[in-house]
Design a protein around this nucleic acid. Structure first.
Lengths: 341, 341
DNA sequence: ATTAGCACTCAATAAGATAGAGTGCTAACA
DNA sequence: TGTTAGCACTCTATCTTATTGAGTGCTAAT
């Protein structure tokens, strides 16, 4: 289904006006604003056509037109030119790396935060689950008075550190020996492959020093159970307070609650992502609570796994800006992570 | 200024009704509800007195009365009996410690989260700045391919871990020697006392292996600069969406924004705290944006420093519940932290 | 194919009417 | 002297009714 140039022009004008004002767009006002060289009556005819085709809709008979979700979809697929962020924003984004003090998760979080500020929509990041990363190294370091630091490293960096208690009389060599046991058993394995039965095996193979082993095992076991899932972060959720479509308190509550709950978000964000930025408009989302919102998501490679970053905003979204910005941010993250390897 | 029994009873009734309904309380309805054994007319007289004394106010001449901030203050100071959480909640709270996998900051965060669920207000925690903790141990562990793990421990646990790059040909003994240098210089010092000049000193005293030292120093220096401040966490901020006094969107925005910004919160929460739970009602708060809210805060001892935990809600707050709950939660946190030592 | 003109529609706003909860005051009562 | 019933009055919230104005669809002329 392809539209002639004039219809396209009109659809685009309506979309841009509507995105800006959140009000239905009338024929007269539109002709004036964009000074198209046709009359309002002609525009009305074209609008009626576009409505028949399903690209526009009318809140009520005597109101202007607003783009339907299908209208947005057509625009996004066939007409949109993405708009990368300006020089100034780009420079600010780069600055985030100058004081590179944080660990990489923190850096990505910072980037996501900035993404929400640039777009004025809520942003989210999904960091792949640590369970997919590769076991590198387990360390047991003696601390004072019957305590030791258990340290677990994978190719993603430090995955866990926890202070465990040990008998008073264990030597640092003993600890190293125990750690070595873990290392031999697990080196190169993915964390998800480390099963409880493996843990059990180690326990049995080394029955002396049982207390240390037990404590270490318990910590690791807990880690494996609790960190199975990828991490989800949202920032700038309050941006939706500025959108007129959410002036209704009930709607607002529903949506903010969804944005606050990790589990809901995991469901919302598409599982598979291609190279290109993915857009879900309104009811294209399967989760009911956010069928009045749109998603713009990009995937990034993180230690061989798929991470995700994007924004979530009203259907009446500046897709051109959102797509341009998310894309750049994705590229920057990938570059950064590549630099870490 | 003390009130006779009847006035107290009336003030309390008004407060409880108003807290529950958020509506002005009229004489007739009140007499019926609480079946006081006096007539509405008498109550009206008493109300007029209480209004003269400044404990009640009238939104407009023909409305009922609502408690003034001073009224709440009187109630809180002279009449209130705090109400600890029920058995069931207490049990749930205890459960939080069963799967004690997290590090202690995470545990405290979990407790604060639970606090917001119990009270239905926003809760906050302030964790004292790491700069006050005592340097214990610096470790440099070799990883693969020109990388090492820098680990900084204080009495508060692991303060920092960061992967730094090192020349390919450094032995594990070399790393240990370097770490030992830091340890001798800093052991027992408070982090806040470690000055840049000290760092400089180490750098000069060991000019070979400069690259490792430089990288380590930079990481530490960054840490010292960036972790100066205490950490603030808020949870359950969305609870205020349920309060009728914040149905106005502008008010809501202002308040949620304050709750989201660490710096604003730091200003809001009183710096000094005694043994008892501290209550700030409405305009007793100095920060303008939250002068329609009340604070209930308790301090807890954390590694010798003062941490804070509490709730923030509308002036029309169930102070009795809030105080009871915050107090219990504070005690539980202190017990927990004591157990860590 | 385009456009001017006109009757019609409908939400949003304003203006007026009503109801109801609550007060303050007065006078009677224990 | 403290308490209470009664009553006139006040004021908001709500409901009704008009009015306005932006916008449409249709028809006829260009």
């Amino acid at each position: 289904m392809t539209l002639d140039e004039r219809k396209k022009k009109i659809l685009e004008s309506i979309i841009r006006d509507y995105v800006e004002t959140a009000e239905p767009v009338g024929s007269r006002a539109m002709v004036k604003k964009h000074d198209l060289r046709i009359s309002a009556a002609t525009v009305r005819n074209e609008m009626a056509d576009l409505e028949d085709m399903g690209y526009l809709e009318q809140p009520h008979t005597s109101a202007g037109r607003i783009p339907s979700e299908r209208g947005f979809r057509y625009y996004v697929d066939c007409m949109m030119e993405k708009e990368p962020p300006g020089e100034r924003e780009y420079a600010l984004l780069q600055q985030l790396f100058e004081h590179n003090v944080e660990d990489w998760e923190q850096v990505i979080l910072g980037i996501a935060h900035f993404l929400s500020q640039m777009t004025r929509y809520a942003s989210f990041v999904i960091v792949p689950a640590a369970k997919f990363s590769e076991f590198r190294n387990l360390q047991l370091l003696p601390l004072d008075q019957g305590k030791a630091l258990l340290l677990l490293l994978s190719d993603m960096g430090v995955i866990m550190h926890r202070i465990i208690s040990i008998p008073e009389l264990v030597s640092s060599q003993d600890l190293q020996a125990i750690a070595e046991l873990f290392n031999q058993a697990f080196r190169g394995k993915r964390l998800e492959e480390v099963k409880r039965s493996d843990l059990q095996l180690i326990r049995e193979s080394l029955s002396q020093r049982r207390r240390i082993i037990d404590n270490a095992l318990e910590a690791i076991d807990n880690l494996l159970q609790n960190s199975r899932d990828e991490k989800v972060w949202v920032s700038g959720a309050l941006n939706i307070l500025n959108e007129p479509e959410f002036k209704d308190m009930e709607k607002l509550k529903r949506i903010l609650n969804v944005l606050e709950e990790d589990d809901s978000l995991r469901q919302i964000i598409p599982g598979e992502l291609g190279e290109a930025v993915d857009i879900k408009i309104g009811r294209e989302n399967s989760v009911e609570e956010i069928q009045e919102m749109s998603l713009v998501v990009a995937g990034y490679k993180s230690f061989g796994e798929l991470g995700k970053i994007g924004v979530i905003g009203p259907v009446r979204m500046e897709y051109w800006k959102a797509v341009g910005t998310v894309e750049i941010v994705r590229d920057i993250i990938e570059d950064y992570l590549k630099g870490l390897g």
